[in-house]
Amino acid sequence: MSLSVFAVDDSRTMREMIKFTLLQAGFQCHLAEDGQHGLEVLDSVRPDVIITDINMPRLDGFGFIDATRAREDTMSTPILVLTTESSAELKARAREAGATGWIVKPFDPDKLVRAIHMVAG
């Protein structure tokens, strides 16, 4: 069974690009528009990998990762942060929240796919 990937990003364009990339690579794909929505979707979807943006309305990426790690069913699900920023501070904060890895936007589709395999086989 193909890996199920769940991407959270407030930009519709970004969601469409991620979805396109994931489906091309043969993954299953679920999407959400912000952290809050992401947590709602996690009630019905159990992804193998989660991809999240950081700067989002309602609940940002840090909060989303925090909350995801606090859930029993997703406490060890790999979470990739997909963001335009790559400062050490951001990485430290993301990791503090429990992020597994990070990818910088604009992303190279191949790299995204490799990173997913990297954290989830």
Partner: peptide, 17 residues
């Protein structure tokens, strides 16, 4: 520099996904 895509762990030709 901030906007340079940063390398992702495995960027290698050998890796046959």
């Amino acid at each position: 520099v901030d906007f340079q895509p940063m390398g992702i762990a495995i960027d290698l030709p050998d890796l046959d996904l």
